[in-house]
Simulated assay, not measured.
Amino acid sequence: MPVTFRKTIQLLIVTMTCSLLLCACTTPPPAAVDADPNILRVGVSPDAPPLIFKQNQEITGLEPELALALAEFLKKTAVLVELPWEDQIPALLDNRIDIIMSGMSVTLARQYQIAFSKPYFKSGLMIITKNLQKYTFITNRETAFAQSITWRIGVVKGTTGEAFIRQKSTGAKAIRAFSNQDEALQALMAGRIDVFVHDAPMVLMMAAQHQTEGIRPLPIMLNDEYLAWGLRKEEPDMVEAVNAFIDQAKQKGTLQTTIKRWIPLAE
């Protein structure tokens, strides 16, 4: 993590808060949508701002904006199908959706079940806490792992954050898995956990929304992760078409422009 990250974190938090007002929202349709060659059924779990979340009961964020652009590229109409996170891969395999666009990281376990598009964004895990002043000495991931023996660590069940922490912080004082990030954040603010480990974009958004309550991120990345879109392995033509969209968006610069609108510190 560059030194400039620490210096710009406060500006980033303000910028990310303002970004919520800049982009249009997308209203979700009913959860069940029949397969149609003219429709792109996009599986979403809108609980991960700024990637995907609800604002005034409408779904918005980076992923919905990219879903609309992808559907236009494919000459289809995007339909957002709201699902619990744990149902995303089953829904894809059961042909209830055509693609997962919901902040999913590429992992080996997931690659056994589904295909992934080319990664469109490099991310990672970060720590958020209510006691940042106690941890100013933590300047790298090694120090964080060493300090974890004193922490009650919160994670979201079924995420890469949970898998990572259970592997790397076996000596932690406690590891508590929550159903979603809101529950983990509430536990952090109530003092029931000391730190919460989650995906960097979500951590920064939580810090932006709760800075008056003293919620702050530690300005280090614990690992490197790559976000991509989930597809069925038996549909290589679809994978190729989605990759062609990503390549074109990168070449035109529209992908990076869209990402930076929602995640200002993105490289």
Rank of each mutant, 00 (worst) to 15 (best):
P30Y: 08
L92I: 07
K76Y: 10
L70Q: 06
L108C: 02
P30A: 14
G124N: 02
K75N: 03
V44R: 08
V79E: 05
T8Q: 09
T8M: 10
T60P: 01
M16L: 02
L20E: 09
F116N: 07
G43R: 08
A67P: 05
S105P: 14
T4V: 07
L66S: 07
Q57S: 15
I100K: 03
T27F: 05
Q10D: 11
C18K: 07
I97D: 10
P28D: 10
A24M: 08
R41C: 08
Q55D: 05
V79Q: 08
L74G: 13
E86D: 08
F73G: 02
M126T: 01
D34A: 03
E63A: 15
K118Y: 03
A24S: 09
F121K: 04
F53W: 01
G61N: 04
S105R: 08
D87M: 10
P90L: 01
S45K: 12
L93K: 14
C18T: 07
V81K: 07
L80P: 00
A78E: 07
V79F: 01
K75A: 06
M104T: 12
P46D: 15
Q57G: 12
L22P: 00
N38S: 15
I13P: 15
R96T: 14
P28Q: 12
D47L: 15
I89R: 04
A91I: 13
K76H: 12
F5Q: 00
A91L: 13
F5D: 00
Q111Y: 08
R96I: 15
G124Y: 05
L92M: 07
Q113W: 06
C25G: 13
T129I: 03
L74S: 14
C25S: 15
K54E: 09
K54S: 09
F121T: 06
I114P: 01
T26I: 15
W85T: 12
T8W: 13
T8H: 14
D34P: 00
F116V: 08
S123F: 10
K118F: 04
L22Y: 00
S105G: 12
P30S: 10
L51Q: 00
I97H: 10
I89A: 04
S45N: 14
P119Q: 09
L108D: 06
L22I: 03
L92Q: 06
M104G: 12
Q10L: 09
K75I: 04
P28R: 14
S45F: 10
D47W: 15
T107I: 01
Q111P: 14
N56R: 07
D34S: 03
R110C: 11
L92V: 09
